[in-house]
Amino acid sequence: MDLSAIDPITLFVGLVSAATPLLFAAIGELVVEKSGVLNLGVEGMMIIGAVCGFAAATTAGSSAVGFVAGAAGGAALALLFGVMTQYFLTNQVATGLALTLFGLGLAALIGQPFTGIKPPPFHGLDIPVLSDLPVLGRMFFRYDIVLYLGVGLIALVWVFLNRTRTGLILRAVGENHDAAHSLGYPVVKIRLAAIAFGGACAGVGGSYLSLVRVPQWTEGMTAGTGWIALAIVVFAAWKPWRILLGAWLFGGVTILQLNLQASGFLSWLQSLGIPMQAQYLSMTPYLVTILVLVVISADRTRAALNAPGCLGRSFTQSG
């Protein structure tokens, strides 16, 4: 085994980049859940964002157009969910699952003409002096602009939720929608806005996959990222900064297992008489997801304390 092939700086750069789609999807879903809505359709909104972003970027020849289109596509799909759950009061869990299935199918349809094409290149920043610093320059100052926007978005969401009146109202709606209504706040409108925001974020996350990470369009390319994003929201206990931590943790596990596969870790294990397939390593991010959820859910009082009081409950106006 050649562990020296794993360069810590490359690993760090890789995990930060791998975490970005997760980070966008998870911070969007956090806002949605804070408003009391459980949208399980993150995976569907991400893949729609990925295909819309890719299609728009290759057609227009501009990555920026691609990201905007990805956000719009994700938001449009989310609003479909919003109208169904908020006006027609469909079950949020079932509708969210349906949204994922619908999104995967629709994305495959839209994406057909775009398989095998390369998107316009999207370069990292080149900041004078900073980007040229040894080690630090590579670790912190050479990423693309969207990645920095993602970290900035976390800070913005934190400020919004904790320091603004609108954010307070959004939390109030998620905490107790009946009380918010009796104080005169428009529960359904606030939730729709949150759902659209969540969709747009998931869409940007999806676009980042197809435009920067991979970068190409393949069917089903999100490969469960949306589900991990949902888990990260729970892992983060609905706190914005912990989304960053969670996304980096899961991004790190993904990158680490890829690096281990490349480093000959498997053949080393086999030489020790432990038969190990590459598939087991590919499983690790998902296994870690399950493990983390189990550990967090074990402490029921803490999970219950942070979860919005009306999460997943439909609001009907009475009287």
Binding site: R165, L168, I169, R171, A172, E175, N176, D178, A179, A180, S182, L183, G184, Y185, L305, P308, G309
Partner: peptide, 28 residues
């Protein structure tokens, strides 16, 4: 109603358990 000077204390409180006293008051 509040703008016209009418305020109400509800029987089943319209309070938010996970928010602070000040936040609850601000919401009203």
């Amino acid at each position: 109603a509040r703008a016209a000077g009418v305020a109400m204390v509800f029987q089943h409180f319209s309070l938010f358990e996970a928010l602070t006293v000040a936040e609850n008051i601000e919401l009203g």
